[in-house]
Computed example of a mutant assay.
Amino acid sequence: MVDVVVIMGSESDRAIANRATNVLENTDYSFDVQVISAHRNPDQLDEYIAQSDCNVYIAIAGLSAALPGVIASKTKKPVIGVPVSAKMMGLDALLSIAQMPPGVPVASVGIDNGGNAAHLAIRILDLIN
């Protein structure tokens, strides 16, 4: 079992993912890192989520930032969205993550703030462990 799964929509989001994993490396919590696009690899994403036994997802995405919402639509586990400053200084991604439809909650941290996403995941895990 892995505690946290960090999924980025593109390899170009690696620096943001590294900010999250740098924080997680200083804990006893386990994590896995994947590059799976909600648009380019939807079947792979569905399969990964269905097979995952993690407790928290961190989803890193820019532009339309669909990844966190797609993950949240497929699991009851907490999803933390990290908007990426790919265009419009990241405001497009931030709004996409923050404005989820009813019943599909996604927590959001600041633009490019993978570190805070990891800190939030740790707080969630501390509550359940």
Rank of each mutant, 00 (worst) to 15 (best):
M8P: 03
S10Y: 02
D13S: 04
N18Y: 15
A20K: 01
A20P: 11
A20N: 08
T21Y: 01
T21D: 03
T21I: 13
N22I: 10
V23N: 01
E25K: 13
N26D: 15
T27C: 02
Y29T: 06
V35N: 10
V35C: 13
I36A: 01
I36E: 11
H39F: 00
R40W: 03
R40K: 12
N41M: 12
P42C: 07
D43L: 14
Q44N: 14
E47N: 10
Y48T: 15
Y48C: 12
I49C: 05
C54S: 10
N55W: 09
Y57M: 00
I58A: 00
I58S: 06
A59H: 10
I60G: 12
L63A: 10
L63C: 00
A66C: 08
G69F: 08
A72W: 05
T75C: 13
K76L: 14
V79M: 04
I80A: 07
I80L: 00
G81D: 05
V82W: 03
V82I: 07
V82D: 10
P83S: 00
S85T: 04
S85Y: 04
M88G: 03
M89Y: 10
M89S: 14
M89T: 00
L91T: 10
L91R: 10
L91E: 10
A93W: 11
L94R: 06
L94E: 12
L94H: 06
L94F: 00
S96W: 01
A98K: 13
V104H: 00
V106S: 10
I111A: 05
N113F: 07
N113R: 02
G114T: 01
A117D: 06
A118L: 03
H119N: 13
L120N: 14
L120M: 13
L120C: 10
L120Q: 15
R123H: 11
D126H: 12
D126R: 14
I128F: 11
I128P: 01
